[in-house]
Design a protein around this nucleic acid. Structure first.
Length: 426
RNA sequence: GGAGAGGUGUCAGAGUGGUCGAUUGUGCAGUCCUGGAAAGACUGUCUGCGUCAAAAGCGCAGCGAGGGUUCGAAUCCCUCCCUCUCCGCCA
């Protein structure tokens, strides 16, 4: 949610910044409604003032009977006018909040121009792409190694659900623990939040109201399956005021994630890359506004360290303004190398939201000097998407005979298993 | 799921329908006192919106949420939500 005062004072700058996104957002209607609302509110407040005056007169004690009934009459008419005003006030407020909730965040000045993902630019690159002759896809390798059972996943749910079998299940669990342990060592406090969250949470981080159809929702309860741990973890401190000295706050969390939209693109119809349900370890930060850029770099670095520990080649790209997510003001994607696809694929997305989510979720901190509460800044990033990590390991660590080595970093988590071979018993 | 209790300011906890943004205690900040601290004394200490260049000031709103009664509601009535306790059912 944008700062209304900023929009009022710097309409043209805001509009120009929003124009860098796709979709042509305008704030003219917002301004109109805001002006109208403030006028109605002023009128309404003056009526309240009069009502309060009349109440005072009654309180003072003995009023002549004639005056009392005159005042009663006046209150009646004031009440009528007020009801009319209240109706339009409510309508304007509704419109205003609807508009505000549907306008995305302003791209940071350091975000490059561009219309879509083809305009994203590489910032850095790590590792060397392995030389593999005729690399197999992760889903071929994984099926042969009894890591994935795609067919039964569909039987149990529907397409884009997969059963992890045997070592598949174990590696997934190992990755989860490895990631959480690594981040914990770097100061991220681990939490394990509810997987179902209420509507307010989804509004707070910006998933709703705009993308209603993208999520799984309970039929009989106002609850949603989380599309990312970002939602519950960012909402941990919703409607709270943190102390400045407690900032920054770092959290890491594992959750499964559920996304309906995952199938709509028609991409990655095979394999384990794009599922309706997938596991992820998420990093979330709350910090002072003046530190969020620096914290963003550090957070992205913390996600990269997981890829480096697993020795997976990757690159960092900065998203152009047109590809930026709704709530983000700046975002780096980490893309891991997939040999069989012969390209880098997204495995982490690290965003700085500025105060956009903080306004929606009412996340504030009390300055150390005791001043008024201010909105803090929120950030998050995948650290990492576990399923894609598993897929990337299969492809990058594959051997010519169809077996797959395991990354050294996972050794403590795999009970000594260092190699997956097709002959492995079921 | 059944029965009961309750939702007020950092917390605890008052509040005959008007004098309540709200007693008091506690916490916090400042001043005094002290060699220093504790204790004690005093003062201050909620948030949002509007007005204003800004601050002060002023106005409006807020006692879980939403309605109703009334000249006037934290206080009365209705609906909803949430929390707690006991029972049941379970992991």
């Amino acid at each position: 949610m944008l700062d209304l005062k900023l929009v009022r004072d710097k309409q043209e700058e805001v509009e120009a910044a929003l124009a860098r996104r796709n979709g042509g957002f305008s704030v003219t209607e917002l301004i109109e409604v805001d002006v109208a609302l403030r006028k109605v509110q002023g009128d309404w407040e003056r009526l309240n003032q009069r009502t309060n005056e009349i109440t005072e007169l009654f309180k003072s004690g003995k009023l002549p009977a004639a005056e009392m009934s005159a005042l009663r009459e006046e209150t009646k008419s004031v009440k009528q006018t007020r009801e009319t005003l209240e109706a339009s006030k409510a309508e304007l407020e509704e419109r205003l909040s609807k508009i505000r909730l549907s306008i995305p965040n302003i791209p940071d000045p350091s975000v490059p121009d561009g219309t879509d993902e083809t305009c994203n630019t590489q910032v850095s690159q790590w590792g060397t792409v392995p030389a593999i002759a005729n690399p197999k896809h992760h889903y071929e390798l994984g099926s042969n190694l009894n890591v994935f059972d795609f067919t039964r996943g569909v039987k149990l749910a529907e397409s884009r659900f997969t059963v992890l079998m045997e070592m598949g299940a174990k590696i997934e669990r190992a990755l989860m623990n490895f990631m959480l342990d690594s981040h914990s060592r770097r100061g991220y406090h681990e939490v394990f939040p509810p997987i179902l969250v209420n509507r307010q949470c989804m509004m707070g981080t910006g998933q709703l109201p705009k993308f209603e159809g993208d999520f799984y929702k309970c039929a009989d309860d106002e609850l949603y399956l989380v599309p990312t741990a970002e939602v519950p973890v960012t909402n941990l401190y919703r409607d709270e005021v943190l102390e400045e000295q407690d900032l920054p706050v770092y959290h890491c969390a594992y959750t499964p994630n559920f996304r309906r939209e995952a199938g709509s693109a028609g991409k990655d119809t095979r394999g384990y890359i794009r599922q309706h349900q997938f596991n992820k370890v998420e990093l979330v930060k709350f910090c002072l506004p003046e530190h969020s850029n620096e914290e963003h770099e550090k957070l992205t670095r913390d996600a990269e360290l997981i890829l480096e520990a697993l020795e997976l080649p990757y690159r960092r790209v900065i998203l152009c303004a047109g590809d930026l997510g709704f709530s983000a003001q700046k975002c780096y994607d980490l893309e891991v190398w997939f040999p069989a696809q012969d390209k880098y694929r997204e495995i982490s997305s690290c965003s700085n939201f500025g105060d956009f989510q903080a306004r929606r979720a009412n996340l504030r901190y009390r300055p150390a000097d005791g001043g008024k509460p201010r909105y803090l800044h929120t950030l998050n990033g995948s650290g990492l998407a576990i399923g894609r990590t598993l897929a990337a390991i299969l492809e990058n660590y594959q051997q010519p005979d169809g077996s797959v080595r395991m990354p050294d970093a996972l050794a403590p988590y795999l009970n000594g298993v260092t190699l997956l071979t097709p002959s492995q018993p079921k």
